[in-house]
Simulated assay, not measured.
Amino acid sequence: MATLRWLRPTARVLATLLVTTVLSWTPTAATAEAGIVRASAPAGAGGRGPAGFVALSDVDHTILQDIRYDTYHNFVGRPIVGYRDPICILTRQAAEGLHRAQVAAQSLGYSLKVYDCFRPQRAVDDFVRWAERLDDQRMKAEFYPRVDKTVLFADGYIASRSGHSRGSTVDLTLVALPPRPQRPYLRGEPLVSCFAPRWQRFGDNTVDMGTGFDCFDPLANTLDPRITGRAMDNRLLLKQVMTDAGFTNYASEWWHYTLAGEPYPDTYFDFPVARRAVTGG
């Protein structure tokens, strides 16, 4: 069994945001020149992604997938623009890094479960449009019960660019092995705060992380000192296996990790999350 280094947090870690130039997915021959990515099919046509992107399941089929933005169970309350299949797509380097993390997690009796992987720019734009519609509060009671929607941009919960669009960032958690069945989310079911006690929140099959996924609240900060006991232990376990596999945590979100040395650090892609994007089918 692998040995982990355990460090208890002494103070909240502040997030650092990277600001880079957005680059578009355009319908020309596949090349990369002067930082501009070009592709052989228009983004809107459902064409293939660029070389170097893979379906995670083709690299490690044991990692569980619960792609929330392809469902009604997310902070918007509907499937997000650009998500056509419930599939995790990543750069090959990031997928291989997740495989390393999965091997370590399995040796300790856990599996990784991904909530989101590559996120096209059109999906990020969809988030921005939603955030500007202040009257749409349908999922507030679960995902941002203590945050006014007018401050989502100022507080950093919504932004016009996301590292996910570079293809090497992933949102994920841990599931104890063997995984318990997870009940389906029922559209319109009563909502419970994302930081309510574990037994009151949506009944997925993950370990307790102190909050649910996509909880817009400071309690979601990875090392928030108010999260203690087993929940903090679980956060640190996830952080350890991901760090050892070459990923860096975004300190404001316990679930958010980016591959160090990612292959496209300044490029934001916009092909759809679809099986044909990585299979050519």
Rank of each mutant, 00 (worst) to 15 (best):
D155R: 09
L152Q: 03
A245N: 01
T206S: 15
A95F: 02
P272E: 01
A29N: 12
A95T: 04
T20H: 08
D136V: 02
L172P: 05
R275H: 11
A41I: 10
T28A: 15
F195A: 13
T211C: 01
A260S: 13
N74T: 07
S40Q: 15
A55G: 15
A51S: 15
D208R: 06
P9R: 02
V114R: 11
T267R: 14
L259V: 07
L152H: 03
H99E: 11
T150P: 00
C88Y: 04
R119P: 11
A30F: 14
P263I: 06
L14Y: 11
N74E: 06
Y264C: 13
A123Q: 10
W130M: 07
L177E: 09
V19W: 12
G35R: 09
Y185A: 03
P145G: 00
M139I: 03
D60N: 13
Q137K: 03
A32W: 13
S107E: 03
A154Q: 08
F143A: 02
R78T: 04
W255Y: 14
L236F: 02
G44E: 11
R38Q: 15
L236R: 11
D60M: 06
A43F: 13
D266Q: 13
H61W: 07
L237E: 00
A260H: 10
Y83G: 09
A41M: 11
R180A: 15
D126Q: 08
G44V: 14
Q65C: 15
G52F: 10
Q121F: 12
L4P: 01
R183Q: 10
A45F: 14
G261E: 07
F143N: 03
D126I: 09
W255T: 11
A15T: 09
L14F: 12
G210R: 00
V273I: 05
D136G: 01
Q182L: 10
P178E: 04
L98Y: 06
H256N: 09
T248C: 06
T28I: 14
R226Q: 09
A231I: 00
L236N: 05
H99W: 10
R146S: 06
L237F: 00
Q106G: 03
R92Y: 08
L56D: 05
W199H: 13
F216M: 14
L90Q: 02
L259H: 04
N205D: 12
L90V: 06
F118C: 07
D204Q: 01
F216S: 06
A32I: 15
